[in-house]
């Protein structure tokens, strides 16, 4: 009889977790992807697991000495959406976390799990991409940091090595007068998966025109798409023409598939709408206006503030 690895190690420290991963154990945090996948027969549960949900070092949100935000990979969506620093400075990420699944999913699901699952429909992906987040991958030998576009290589596939564990997500400080937002198309007001989505971070100049803008798109390509060609917006005021340009750029750079959630044409069209709204909400937040998290529910369709999309654009 061959020797079996420990089927489940409950790690209390990063070192314990890394050691188990180095010996072939698969990390599990909330289990929402792994266990559901196994139940549906998509993928068998790995024979050896290391539970990392009790590693306190992975559960903190803090500022590094250079002012960067460091989010432990074990931080849950529920924590992210209510963290003051995230809501204040990286609001798009809070918008996204607040939209994931149900309260229960948000309680156990972690940002690390979301990021390492590599789904093009992941809600936290586009916000991390627009913030130029670095993903910290660790082994028993040490750490390395890579960009999100280096990490996500194909649907459900990352460039991480089997012995690497995602331990943190690091985001540099955003310039003054910046705001961000994540908006997604959803058919119900909750329990949705992104049909398409868009995150934007907008920095305004002192004159109120656009000084910087980054947009990323969810569920319109094999991985999260960063929109190119936004330089033309620099110096422009936020208005209907600017937003129309944003929508066109986003729609034209989307390369979606048709599936049971939406057709290619509808996705291409609606991702432009999402991009436009994300930019508008981000710009309003950049002026210091408070739009509560998630922006989908505070000014999305079905909320009392829905008309603000139009009001803000004119």
């Amino acid at each position: 009889m061959t020797e079996r690895p420990n089927p489940l190690l409950i790690a209390n420290t990063i070192d314990e977790a890394l050691d188990a991963v180095s010996r072939g154990s698969t990390p599990i945090a909330g289990g929402t992807d792994l266990v559901v996948g196994a139940r549906q027969g998509n993928k068998r549960l790995p024979a050896s697991l290391v539970a990392i949900d009790r590693v306190e070092e992975l559960q903190s949100i803090g500022l590094d000495s250079d002012g960067s935000l460091s989010i432990g990979s074990g931080v849950t969506h529920a924590t992210l959406m209510s963290s003051t620093v995230v809501v204040t400075n990286y609001t798009a990420l809070a918008d996204a976390a607040a939209l994931i699944g149900s309260p229960a999913t948000r309680n156990v699901g972690t940002i690390g799990g979301n990021v390492m699952n590599g789904s093009p429909a992941m809600d936290t992906g586009a916000p991390l991409a627009v913030f130029d987040a670095m993903i910290q991958l660790s082994t028993v030998a040490g750490n390395r940091q890579i960009t999100t576009s280096e990490l996500w290589v194909a649907p459900g596939q990352t460039s991480a090595e089997p012995d690497e564990l995602c331990t943190a997500i690091i985001i540099a400080p955003q310039p003054d007068r910046s705001g961000s937002a994540y908006v997604r198309l959803e058919y119900r007001r909750s329990m949705e998966i992104a049909v398409v989505g868009a995150a934007a971070v907008v920095t305004l100049g002192l004159d109120g025109t656009i000084a910087g803008c980054r947009i990323a798109l969810t569920a319109v390509a094999p991985t999260i798409v960063l929109v190119d060609g936004l330089e033309s917006l620099i110096g422009q005021a936020i208005g209907e023409a600017t937003l129309a340009t944003v929508a066109d750029l986003a729609s034209s750079q989307a390369a979606p598939i048709s599936d049971l959630r939406a057709s290619e044409q509808y996705r291409s069209h609606s991702v432009g709408v999402m991009a436009k709204r994300a930019v508008l909400a981000a710009a309003r937040r950049a002026t210091g206006e408070s739009i509560s998290v998630p922006v989908n529910r505070s000014i999305g369709v079905g909320s009392d503030g829905q008309r603000q999309w139009e009001a803000g654009a004119s």
């Binding site: 489940l8 289990g31 149900s102 156990v108």
Partner: peptide
């Protein structure tokens, strides 16, 4: 905290 027990490993709930 609320958890969907269908997608949570029993062994992970120890302690």
């Amino acid at each position: 905290q609320p958890v969907n027990s269908c997608s949570y490993l029993a062994a992970q709930a120890q302690g």
